[in-house]
Amino acid sequence: MTGSLSLVGVRAGYGSVEVLHGVDLSFPAGTVVALVGHNGSGCSTILRCTAGVVRPRSGRIVWDGADITGWTGYRRTTAGMVFVADEHNVFNTLTVAENLELFGRPQPLDTSVDAACSVFPELRDLLDHRAGTLSGGERQMLALARALARPARLLLLDDVSRGLSAAVATRFFAALRERSTAATTTVIAEQFIDTALGIADIVYAIRRGRVAFAGEPGELSEQSLATVLS
């Protein structure tokens, strides 16, 4: 299957704590996939493993038929992967403009700025500010601008609406929808389940490092969600 990404038997963790106890997941091309689960359930770790920030202890990650488990972050990025982490996701010591320039390389700065400000006009007045001085919400907008900066084949977005107001989050998701093509795969982890279910084609519920539910959003009613997650 082209354009798809799959995790096969991935185990991962931090220090002596194993967080993912062997997960099998598939993210088909051209879909939006939502990962939902409690804090600490492993959603973030799944994204980090896929992005290469956390190395799996075992298992494989396959993207378009190639085993990318050992790839560096740089190689994944040049192959078209964009990962926006839930924290430390902007360069605090650089200005907003410098951040955008880096995100959009090798495009000229103006292109990157326009792409970001078309969705987050709030950023235009902040271009000369260091990212470290922004508020949490502004910083999150800047981080998400990376998802819009250049065309991506695989978008991994962790904790998207952290610090964002509902209106801004909606605006971002709309822009995301608009830009995605049949070749784009988008994986989001979202705190607000209803938001996530609203835009996703496929939902995975993660519970304690294992896949507890896989299916379409419509199949996940209020009750079943509660039982699946608890």
Binding site: V53, Y74, V82
Partner: peptide
């Protein structure tokens, strides 16, 4: 400042 993020934005940090 942030090696992992730099790699993820396509900088050859190594």
């Amino acid at each position: 400042e942030n090696r992992a993020l730099a790699e993820l934005t396509g900088v050859r940090a190594d």
